[in-house]
Write a protein that binds this DNA or RNA. Structure first.
Lengths: 247, 247
DNA sequence: GATGATCTCCCCAGGACTGGGGATAACCGA
DNA sequence: TCGGTTATCCCCAGTCCTGGGGAGATCATC
């Protein structure tokens, strides 16, 4: 059983941590202190070296293997349930979030056979990013301490945020192509689904000029489609969702 | 200053609450107990009477009016910042999440003039649903109690979950349109800048079929351009950046 | 057995986008 | 002064997308 003080200490340490080894150590420690046996801090996608994703796991090896072999990242019932809520939930209450199919029950049974008891999963969703979660599990037979769950939720949220920060910093922050002001204006309007002619009316310039700006912007990103141009500009912050939906 | 016990009590009561009037009362009470003056429990969309969304607000009336008149739901800097993280943040730290434009600074200044001091916002994102948040604000001049913020985050999360439950039970869903599996696959590939022909090759179906799926997906979102289709699907979690850049 | 949802395929006309090729003018730093 | 960057405008051919119109097959639900 931990207290609020330990949560605050965990946050403080997690916020300054530099590499995922250190985070794994911190997770192992807090997991034990909270009375859990296993933890998993993951993005719900298959691991691909190209993408920087969160994947810090200490689960029974058998289960990890089974999970990866069957590619359960998106279909695992616990993950699916975590896509339906914003607050943490006990695995034993998963049926209040999703209806379990026969396949789901068999997955849960296999997890149990691999040594996982009841657990608690904290969802982690951020618009435009891969869904993720932070889970803690007991050994089989152990019982969750209900009173502690709010604190477990806090730990899970902050742990995920720390992991997310790490995964972004390791991704080489090489300067993406930057757009000129006019190009960015055009791209923002492209992202709103405007045609080149409409953009020319909004900006008060010629249609040919807009075509040129969009052309130049595509060139800078090395893409050939305006759809991808808009999404890449969104991805690296040249424009924001607010530019698309706001104002 | 509140303690963990009060958080647990709040959760218990919030989980059983039946209507938004009662929730507003509960929010007013806990807001005061935590030493805050105002609160806002909202979905980040314009209010449409037809749509059931969360909107339980006790903010200075001047500011609420200004906010609605200028339709800041998507562009407000605090809301934008909340789209970039999973954990609560103090308004004074908003610059660590987004870069503030001149317009943003003026919005914050206006909020301050309306009587809002520093505050704390807890993001609430669920895939496929409108983004939301739960904010608490001090009167101007008052200072946030840092030690309490983890508990404020918990209160915010559970409050939003309660409001979300209410908004679903009272009316039909306020979720965005959902796509069929095939449509989502096509949209994900559209977001990668693929042409309809390329998509047909990837999925092993006819080009005409892809055209139809994309057409249907555009219809569901009520948009006329594939670019906007891709971005809207991204925004409400039907696809993620990993679908675009991964693999 | 009808109904609706989904997936599949087809046709066509007109508008939008892409990838080439140009040009002029303003500005700024070397 | 010269070169680089930016913003503005123009033309064209070919491809792609959009908005109409169909139709048949499967599957679950009622």
């Amino acid at each position: 059983m931990i207290g609020l003080g330990q949560v605050q200490e965990f946050c403080a340490v997690a916020a300054t941590i530099r590499d995922s080894r250190a985070l794994a150590g911190l997770m192992a420690e807090i997991t034990r202190e909270m009375g859990f046996r296993y933890y998993a801090l993951v993005h719900h996608i298959d691991l691909k070296p190209a993408v920087s994703s969160v994947h810090i796991v200490d689960y029974p090896p058998d289960w990890v293997e089974c999970f990866q072999a069957r590619r359960l990242y998106a279909s695992d019932p616990i993950h699916r349930a975590s896509h339906r809520t914003n607050v943490g939930f006990a695995w034993s209450a998963v049926q209040s979030l999703i209806t379990l199919s026969a396949a789901d029950r068999s997955i849960l049974a296999e997890a149990h056979d691999a040594g996982l008891g009841d657990g608690f999963t904290v969802p982690a969703h951020i618009p435009g990013e891969v869904n993720g979660s932070c889970s803690f599990a007991m050994g089989s037979g152990d019982v969750l301490d209900q009173r502690q769950l709010p604190l477990v939720q806090l730990i899970g949220s902050f742990a995920f945020e720390a992991a997310r920060r790490l995964s972004r910093q390791t991704q080489a922050r090489c300067e993406g192509p930057s757009l000129t002001e006019r190009q960015a204006e055009c791209v923002a309007l492209v992202a709103r689904g405007k045609t080149d002619w409409e953009i020319s009316q909004i900006l008060g310039i010629g249609q040919e000029t807009v075509i040129q700006h969009v052309k130049d912007a595509r060139d800078r990103y090395g893409v050939t489609k305006r759809t991808l141009l808009a999404i890449r500009a969104l991805f690296d912050g040249q424009i924001s969702f607010a530019d698309v939906f706001g104002r």
